[in-house]
């Protein structure tokens, strides 16, 4: 999976936000506010990665257990997929 090419990520003050940019229209009705870990994941997802690869890298980066990382990442990816922010490839 990877980040949808139409997703734009911007910094606003202390927040990092993401939204979808359409061909002719930008819809700011659904803005995703990213916490530092979500921002890190979005950075990773700019290139294709499997969930296992993300979990592995996340554990190495943040020193959490693989079980906890998998649960959080899986939930996060599911939410992002529902909003159209990531796509399966």
């Amino acid at each position: 999976m990877k980040l949808n090419d139409a997703v734009a990520v911007r910094k606003i003050g202390n927040d990092t936000i993401a939204f979808v940019v359409g061909e002719s229209r930008v819809d700011l009705r659904q803005i995703l506010r990213l916490n530092p870990m979500a921002e890190w994941l979005f950075g990773r997802l700019s290139t294709p990665h499997t969930e296992d690869e993300l979990v592995e890298a996340f554990v190495a980066e943040y020193g959490v257990t693989a079980e906890a990382a998998r649960k959080d990442i899986s939930e996060f990816l599911q939410n992002c997929a529902e909003l159209g922010f990531i796509e399966d490839i």
């Binding site: 940019v21 930008v26 506010r33 996060f76």
Partner: peptide, 30 residues
Amino acid sequence: MRKPSVLSAYPMDELSGIICEFVEQGKEVV
């Protein structure tokens, strides 16, 4: 990690830069 927070309304003053960026590119901004 908390569930990502989805915002439907963000203060216009803070979004103005983004609105202008895409309007200048010829896109409509909702």
